[in-house]
């Protein structure tokens, strides 16, 4: 089974807001902030590796530049992916979800012979949850989002898709796109051997020309959406702390305050 995992390498989304500043409607992370494979993309890698371990095949990790995304791909290789490709070209800069999906779809087409394409459910920086849908539509494939379990029966994938009340069992034939939720798998830590091998691995770079992409369809030129303004919402702290000698006293005071506020 040949699986492509699309990953995004992003600044630590759990860093405090003070670690970012806004410049020309762009979010600029502080120098030295850690970069990580986006939340749920690492779970997607793990899901791919587990399928491969069960059914054989090849796992390829791909990421849209910049060049620093190479470190994210090295991590994917260290976890156990068989190969990685960096998609980087000045023409890709400033792509929105449509441009990003167009580049990833072109790369997947170039890789060829793919049974399953995995992504995270939404990137931890922009929280959009669009790219999986774009890849599916550009390639004419079915998509399932968000998945918390995936298995291969020999003829089809059974994907557990989360909905409000539980999950649905969805049967879908390959090739297909599945956007993974965090429940799908616990990402493994790379082994020392994996890290050594990854550090020696060659990661090819594919450009717009390599992918046969019209530069007018991607990057700034290909945007369907524009960012007008970024700002930090203000939170006004107004917490009233309830204190007491023991839990009983605290509980009694809290209940009294809630009753005064007519919340009970």
């Amino acid at each position: 089974m040949n699986i492509v995992v699309c990953i995004k390498y992003v600044p630590d989304w759990e860093a405090p807001a003070s670690q970012f500043r806004i410049e020309d409607s762009r979010l600029v992370p502080a120098p030295g902030i850690a970069y990580r494979i986006s939340d749920t993309d690492d779970e997607a890698i793990e899901a791919a590796l587990q399928l491969k371990e069960k059914h054989g095949g090849r796992v390829t990790a791909i990421s849209l530049g910049p060049a620093s995304a190479r470190d994210g791909l090295k991590h994917a290789l260290a976890m156990g992916c068989d190969q990685a490709v960096l998609l980087d070209d000045p023409a890709f800069e400033d792509s929105d979800a449509a441009g990003t999906a167009a580049v990833l779809a072109a790369a997947i087409r170039k890789l060829g012979d793919v049974d399953l394409i995995l992504t995270g459910r939404q990137a931890a920086d922009w929280d959009q949850g669009q790219v999986h849908a774009g890849i599916a539509e550009f390639l004419g494939l079915p998509a399932v989002i968000p998945a918390r379990h995936i298995e291969w029966t020999g003829s089809e994938f059974i994907v557990h898709r989360i909905y409000e009340e539980g999950y649905e069992e969805i049967a879908v034939k390959p090739p297909c796109v599945v956007a993974c939720s965090n429940e799908i798998a616990e990402p493994r830590y790379p082994t020392l051997r994996g890290i050594m091998a990854a550090s020696r691995a060659q990661i090819p770079v594919w450009t717009a020309a390599d992918l046969g992409i019209d530069p007018g369809r991607v990057g700034r030129a290909g945007r369907r959406t524009r960012v007008l303004r970024l700002y930090a919402p203000q939170v006004e702290a107004k917490c009233e702390f309830i204190e007491g000698e023991n839990p009983e006293e605290i509980a009694a005071k809290l209940v009294q305050r809630l009753r005064e506020e007519k919340l009970l």
Partner: peptide
């Protein structure tokens, strides 16, 4: 208006299509 980076920031965006 969308919330980004989990909610630490907000973005105002427009769709041109």
């Amino acid at each position: 208006t969308r919330s980004i980076l989990g909610g630490n920031f907000r973005a105002e965006v427009v769709i041109d299509t």
